[in-house]
Computed example of a mutant assay.
Amino acid sequence: MKIYYYKSAHGNFGDDLNAWIWDALLPGFFDDNENVRVSGIGTIITSAMPPAKKWYVFSSGVGYGYPPANFGDSSWETLCVRGPLSAEILGLPKDKFITDGAALLNTLTEFKPLSEAERKGVIFVPHHHALVTGQWEKVCQQAGVEFVNPQSDAKTVIQKIRNAKLVLADAMHAAIIADAMRVPWVPLITSSQINTFKWLDWTQTINLPYRPTVLGSSSLREYLRDKSLCIYGEKYFLPDSDVEFAIKYFKKQRELKNKKWWGRYQDVTQLVSHRIPNKGVKVVEDVFNLNLNDRFIDNASRILVNAKSQSGFLSENDKFNSNLDRLLNGIDRLSKCK
């Protein structure tokens, strides 16, 4: 039985933790048999999933595209999905969602939550896409907040979260892991690419609202990229959205992107609206040694300073522990599937 998860070319801690958490939970259980697969932590239930004779779904989520064409037939067993929005899209009953599987980090000795007295400092964990054109390390330096690179080793990032007093989270798994470590977290938005559907899918499982603070862009190139996202279908942030609207928007976008012409359209519009302007600005900055980002850095820094003064969100202990017990029961069921 082999774990399936998304592997970013540059690394992303929320996905990369799949490489070792399952062996820690079920030592010696998994192998490289690709005939039997387990979909792990992440937004990975899509048509890109590889074929297998048997699939087990455990705490995975929906957020992009359609599931495999044969999803739900006898070759699939869904132990649980991440949240109610994933369950709705997949046509599953309500008892089939629990919460994101990263909550299971709480059960590992290496990541045992620390007392408040043992924790210190405020950290900011951006979405890995924010590193492409952003200047978030400079924003953090100006705001007096520790910048944590989401492409760093997963255990290093998790320990940073575990030891913080407050986590400012653009990356959803920064908030999920902070909640698992019982560390307050503040949801932030660096761009319209942050996926409201995914965040609601998780926050609904811990009975908390999703009310993110919009940071805006940290550079001119990031600003231009953000404004182009809606043109080529990468805008996922839905301000003040409720669950019903998020589901409707997801279905509408999914249907649009399944059109035969969409791939070509996306390639052309992304080239014209993002890649060429982005390259042009970078060339101008480099050739003329210009700094076009100070205004963006100053503005984002002011908002980040305000964000670090917030008390943050944290799920109720009873709700968190109830979800954790259900996940552990699911792990026990998975252990009997081999």
Rank of each mutant, 00 (worst) to 15 (best):
V38M: 13
N12A: 08
R37F: 05
P27C: 08
N12M: 05
E34W: 00
L17M: 15
F30K: 00
F30H: 03
A9I: 05
D32K: 13
N33L: 07
G28N: 02
G11A: 03
L17G: 02
G40W: 01
I21Q: 01
R37Y: 01
W22M: 10
D31R: 05
F29Q: 01
P27I: 12
N33H: 11
S8F: 12
F13P: 00
N18E: 08
V38W: 00
D15L: 09
F30G: 04
G40V: 03
S8K: 09
S8N: 14
V36R: 12
W22Q: 05
E34S: 14
G40E: 07
N12G: 06
E34G: 06
V36D: 00
S8L: 07
A9N: 13
W20T: 13
G11S: 06
L25F: 06
W22A: 06
N35M: 06
R37Q: 15
R37H: 03
G28D: 05
D32L: 10
N18V: 03
P27G: 03
I21D: 00
H10Y: 13
A19S: 15
N33E: 11
F30L: 11
N35W: 01
V36Q: 07
G40C: 12
L25A: 09
N35R: 14
V36H: 06
D16V: 04
A19M: 07
W20H: 09
D15M: 07
A24R: 14
N35V: 10
V36I: 15
N35Y: 02
N35G: 15
D15W: 07
D32V: 04
F29L: 09
N12F: 05
E34A: 14
S39K: 06
G11H: 04
D15P: 06
D23N: 15
L25H: 07
